[in-house]
Structures are given as C-alpha cells and as structure tokens.
Write a protein that binds this DNA or RNA. Structure first.
Lengths: 110, 110
DNA sequence: TTTATTAATCGTAATTTTACGATTGATTTA
DNA sequence: TAAATCAATCGTAAAATTACGATTAATAAA
C-alpha cells in the first residue's frame, strides 16, 4: 500500500491537453474566434487578419485541423475553413465539465 | 476599404492562449486534477503520482505557478500546493464564456 | 551541531515549435 | 493553352519545451 505510481495519464488528461495545446497560441485563438464568429472563412481572409505570413498561418491551420477543431473545403481556387462542429461540441462538453464551478468546501492551505 | 490587418492579438486571445498553454501537457493536467480534487497537496505526493522525475515535476509546477493557476506555501520541509482560487475563477469565467454552447444558425460551408 | 529530508535550480541534450521565403500544385480566368 | 491566383509544402533557422541527473538551499530531526 504505498502510493501507487501512475504509469500513464488518463484519456481525459491526454485529450484535454491536446485541445489546450491547439489553443495555446494567440494566432490559433484568433483563427478560432474568427471562425466561431463568421461561421466560415476563406483562408486568404484569415491571412489578412493575422500579423503573420501566409505560410505561417497555413501551419497554424494545419495544427487546428490535426487537432480536429477545424475543417477545410475546396471552393474554387480558395479553401473555405470552418469549425468542425461535432468535435467542437465534444471539446465544449469536456472543458465545460472540467471548468464547471467548483465547490471549495474549506479554505485551501495556501 | 480593405480588410484592416490586425497588428496585435486581443487581450482575451493572449490570456486564453496563456491558460491553454499551461494546461497543454498531460502532466500539468494531472497536477491540476489532483489539486482540484484534493484541495491541497504536498509536492512529494505529486511527484509520487506522476511518472516523472522530481526535477521535471518541479518544472511543471513552476509553469503552473507562473501562469498563476497554482500557489505554493512552505510547510516545514515540504511545500504545500493548491489551486489559486481567484485566478481559477477567472479562467473558468473566461473559458466558460468562450466555450459556451453556440448557436449554429445555418449549416457551415464544410 | 550533524545528518536527513524536501524541493528548487543548474547544466545539458533531444525534440518540438514558430516563423519566414521560396517553390509547388491545383484551379480559374483570359 | 497560357497566365494568374490561392494555399500547401519544403527547407531552414532560431527559440522554446521537455526531460533527466546532480547540486544547492532550507528546514527538521537526531
């Protein structure tokens, strides 16, 4: 009965960390807010709104896509980006649960 | 007139990104969950619960402290860690607002 | 006072992230 | 078909992150 040493992290910890990492850069936050507000947006417009080069924005978009938060669809010469709604709902649920108002029963030690 | 190019990110984007970054590693998520569940915890016990060396855990704790999410207090030879409640409330509000259920008026483009 | 315990910091190496310009590939327009 | 447009990818450099063992500093116990 000593303290059992966790060998691995929980699925929840890994998943939340993954989402948090996707949102851990102001540029990616800005992209997400843009898409959440605008419903959809072509890549060029996103580049125009950010103080970064086209290739750098493309890299950030790739990270958001890889985290599953964003989807892109060809629209002529352009690519139209939008929120991946089911995944976003999943993230909302997960974080909503994690960040819900907590009850501090007693004052903490510090 | 043409699209105005953002020179900087908003305060909200920078702040949320900062919090997200603090939570963007499974070890730091594990620490936060531990403290949220236990109210407080001495450093050694956190080390015991994680599959990492003492120095690495200390580094993660430092990052959480620097993000303002966690506070530590000397307790004899040990250090007692706990959630920084006011800051956590701030984060909860901010993220709660950001991750609140959104209304998708029309189907997205992709 | 000496020894033991606890956690922060130092030094270091490997990996990842961030950013850019240049190039490529795909599609649309002339 | 040729030229133009748009966004992904490549190549690269600089910086940050992650991890560890070793050392240090501070307190407690012997």
């Amino acid at each position: 009965m000593g303290a059992s040493k966790l060998i691995n992290y929980t699925e929840e910890q890994i998943l939340v960390a993954k989402y948090a990492k996707a949102l851990s850069h102001p540029a990616r936050m800005a992209i997400m807010q843009l898409l959440l507000a605008k419903q959809s947006c072509i890549c060029g417009d996103i580049v125009d709104e950010l103080p970064l080069s086209q290739s750098t924005v493309s890299q950030h978009l790739k990270e958001l896509k890889e985290a599953g938060l964003v989807r892109g669809q060809i629209d002529g010469v352009s690519i139209c980006y939008c929120i991946n709604e089911p995944e976003w709902a999943k993230l909302t649920d997960l974080l909503g649960h994690f960040f819900e108002k907590r009850h501090v029963k007693t004052s903490s030690c510090c």
